[in-house]
Design a protein around this nucleic acid. Structure first.
Lengths: 325, 325
DNA sequence: CTGAAAGCGCTTACAG
DNA sequence: CTGAAAGCGCTTACAG
């Protein structure tokens, strides 16, 4: 069913049908009626491919994440959705799983003109190939940073937040503070590790152990914690995600130790999960929704105005103390 | 940058360029070289809109979920991704948030020919308008059922699973068993409630209290549990999702009661979360990944073979007993 | 093995 | 207010 058929059915030209479809211009009421009638009768639905090919505009944006299962990511996406919707855009979610092949495939939606722009929450700094694939298309990094200054990004100051956590633990008398970090191909992981190390150094704390979780699942956090417990265990653990911290909690409990008496635990993100585990987690609360919203604002601005300047937006964060410390 | 430009650059026709792009036919090695060279030089990337418009094939499928934040949903999506990828398809995720407007918008990707088919994990049975929008396009319902027999679906036998849970609780001596259910616009919610009620009836248990959670978040589960505790509290709670059960656990703890001594709790889905909370949850383990994979198989079959028969696939489930009961 | 040409289903100046 | 026509960027018989 095409616009041609509708035109024939309604006894008008395709141009007229197109006009009522885009409720633009002034179409004579009678003709509009006829067209609407024909559309209804034939259950016609416009072919978006043709439309987008012609107008070079899709009002869709691609959101690439490495793991939607992470609740923080889910929150950010909600913010993105809200703001996109408010501006007449729809979003397409692509879960890369940090897989190169799948990332490539996702990006082809951008280079293939299916979407108008892209928001990534994925690690790109070590993958120049992917950045090249994006080229000069509208692109915003979200809750993750670009090394170069050519792409806009929005997030929090990870070094500061990390330093704050470790300082709090040290202030509370902890001397053996371990870090459960994510893959260092993420810039945020490198920054948080830097914050961690800088405080240890500043306070002359010798114990410095970093365990890397294979992904941001609770079971990865649990596995990492088990390794930490295996030899020379810490008296405090800072995990860079609430999910990891939740797993750590579980491993500590299984080892017959108590939180926070034996080991204090701090998470990151401030997701609902941090309140649901027992004991509830101290954590860094990120303004997840706002990060998502802001990312959309930056992106839409870039789409409408291709030579808008690159921006690097830093949002506020907040340390929330709960029973785990 | 278009195929035209490449043709000019390489000194061949657009047809030849198209042929090397689809590495089809036999193109003379020399010409192939030239084209490849031109593509590289100009950093050309094919316009997918044009390609898909022409071929009427996108090798993309749309996955519509009501809430990706639900970990069970995340697992199913992983299964979908794996199977799709294996078959050369990519998936687009659309988070409807159970919102009619957003669902409509997502479905236009289907009617607009952007995708070849759709897998839904959303409630449709009460929304004939949406079903109409999908029309006769390839469609599989996943972990949720269609009322009519015209659309294929894959899931588990919810009535059986629910009956099993409630029977277990009753066998364990529980007499006041409450249900924390989801919105009844979901067929699975109606089926699980039916299973719950049938066992109560069978065993002459008079206590019958159902609380409905506003969504599948832990905080909704917590809110529901608080209501149950407010008057005439149960000695067991069956929640239709692990996330809800996790929230219930928390509410019980906050009320100063013990699980399972005072109140037993059972979840549903068998997600990682069920092992991460304390005490770990007894739950119904669904074969999430396999459900996703199977849905893709059914869908691709329907795409390739439009008059394939409708199938209703029931997968196996398993009751996992843990410390919460 | 290759190219000219038609056509996928739209939108949009342009002329009337 | 309306229609004929060009064109978005591809693919694919068809003829050679």
């Amino acid at each position: 069913m095409s616009i041609q058929k509708i035109a024939k059915l309604a006894g008008v030209s395709v141009a007229t049908v197109s006009r009522v479809l885009n409720n633009s211009d002034s179409v004579k009421a009678k003709n509009r009626e006829r067209v609407l009638q024909a559309i209804k009768e034939s259950n016609y639905q416009p072919n978006l491919l043709a439309r987008q090919l012609r107008t070079a505009r899709s009002y869709m944006i691609l959101v690439m994440v490495s793991n939607i299962a992470n609740p923080f990511c889910g929150e950010v996406v909600k913010g993105i959705e809200e703001e996109a919707e408010k501006n007449g855009y729809r979003i397409l979610l692509c879960n890369s799983g940090s897989d190169l092949q799948r990332s490539r495939s996702g990006l082809s939606l951008l280079s293939g003109k299916i979407v108008d722009g892209i928001i990534t929450m994925d690690a790109f700094s070590k993958l120049p190939e992917l950045s090249a694939l994006i080229g000069t298309a509208p692109w915003v990094q979200c809750a993750e940073y670009a090394d170069s200054g050519t792409v806009s990004c929005v997030g929090i100051n990870d070094v500061d937040a990390s330093q704050h956590v470790v300082s709090q633990l040290a202030d509370g008398g902890r001397r053996r503070i371990a870090l459960i970090n994510h893959d260092l191909s993420y810039k945020y992981a490198r920054l948080r590790e830097r914050g961690y190390k800088s405080v240890l150094h500043l306070r002359d704390l010798e114990y410095q152990v970093v365990e890397y979780a294979s992904d941001l699942s609770s079971s990865a956090g649990m596995a990492a914690m088990k390794k930490l417990l295996a030899n020379n265990p810490p008296d405090a653990v800072f995990a860079v995600s609430d999910t990891l911290a939740a797993g750590a909690l579980r491993a500590i409990e299984q080892a017959g130790l108590r939180v926070p008496q034996d080991i204090a635990v701090v998470g990151f993100d401030g997701t609902e999960l941090s309140e649901m585990v027992s004991p509830p987690l101290s954590t860094i609360e990120q303004p997840s929704r706002d990060i998502g919203r802001k990312a959309v604002d930056l992106l839409l601005n870039k789409i409408d105005n291709p030579d808008a300047p690159t921006e690097r937006v830093m949002m506020d964060w907040r340390y929330v103390a709960r029973a785990s410390t």
